[in-house]
Simulated assay, not measured.
Amino acid sequence: MGEKNNLVLVVGAIAAFVLQIALAPAVALFSAQPNFLLAYALVVAIVIPTEAGPVLPFVMGLLYDLTGTGPVGGMALLLVIACFLASRVFSLMDNDTLFMPLAIFTACALLAELSYGMLLMACGLAANPLEALFTRALPCALYDCAVGLVVYFVMARLLAGGAQDRGLRTPKLR
């Protein structure tokens, strides 16, 4: 990966962290708030699937855990798994359309949020499965999808030139 791409990834990660701390609590509805860190890590895994490794999702998940009220390490593990799945599924199913990255992002975000809800329930931080599902997992996943849509267009544009140099296909954003 080139220095330009590394710089873009680091600046994007810092921006996602700042948004998570400053903006996410301000736009929270009840107990649901967007997870900018999850959205960013998943988008990077989809935009550059062959170069996405476990370090960025782990760090982003750990930052989420350290700034939140959930168990430390939970989101870090779930983000590594979700990003691994997203990058591998995208590598297999990419058909050069906009539908596949968005469908994969949505599925992985929902899987990560549902798993995090189950983890909160297992740790006693959510009262019952309905609370974990309807007041946390589904609303947060919807927030994540809205954020991920915007982040995807930005990151696809910033990282597209490097992807074409390496022989990777990127969707045509017209």
Rank of each mutant, 00 (worst) to 15 (best):
A28F: 03
S31F: 11
Q33P: 00
P34S: 03
N35Y: 01
N35H: 08
F36Q: 01
F36D: 07
Y40K: 00
A41P: 03
V44N: 05
V44F: 01
A45R: 04
V47L: 04
I48Q: 15
P49L: 08
A52R: 08
G53Y: 05
G53M: 11
G53E: 02
G53C: 09
P54G: 15
P54E: 09
P54I: 15
V55K: 14
L56F: 08
P57E: 07
M60A: 15
L62P: 07
L63F: 14
Y64L: 06
Y64H: 15
Y64V: 09
D65C: 06
L66H: 07
G68Y: 04
G68D: 06
T69N: 12
T69A: 14
T69Y: 10
G70A: 12
P71D: 14
P71F: 13
P71T: 15
V72C: 02
V72I: 15
G73I: 02
A76T: 08
L77F: 11
L77S: 12
L78E: 09
L79D: 09
L79K: 01
I81M: 11
A82C: 08
A82S: 14
C83D: 02
F84I: 01
L85H: 07
L85V: 15
A86V: 07
S87H: 09
S87N: 10
D94F: 04
N95H: 10
N95T: 14
T97S: 14
L98I: 13
L98K: 06
P101V: 12
L102F: 13
F105P: 02
C108T: 12
L110M: 14
L110I: 11
L110S: 06
L111H: 02
E113G: 00
E113F: 00
L114H: 02
S115Q: 03
S115M: 13
Y116F: 15
Y116V: 08
G117W: 04
G117E: 05
L119C: 07
L120M: 14
M121H: 11
M121K: 14
A122N: 05
A122C: 05
L125Y: 11
A126Q: 07
A126L: 08
A127S: 11
A127I: 09
N128A: 10
P129R: 10
E131N: 09
A132D: 00
L133N: 05
L133G: 04
F134Y: 05
T135V: 13
R136S: 06
R136I: 15
R136M: 11
R136N: 05
A137N: 10
L138Y: 03
P139Q: 04
A141Y: 04
A141T: 01
A141L: 00
L142M: 12
D144A: 12
D144P: 00
C145V: 13
A146D: 09
A146F: 10
L149I: 12
V150Y: 01
V150G: 10
V150P: 00
V151M: 13
V151Q: 05
Y152H: 04
F153P: 03
F153G: 11
V154I: 15
V154L: 11
V154G: 00
M155W: 12
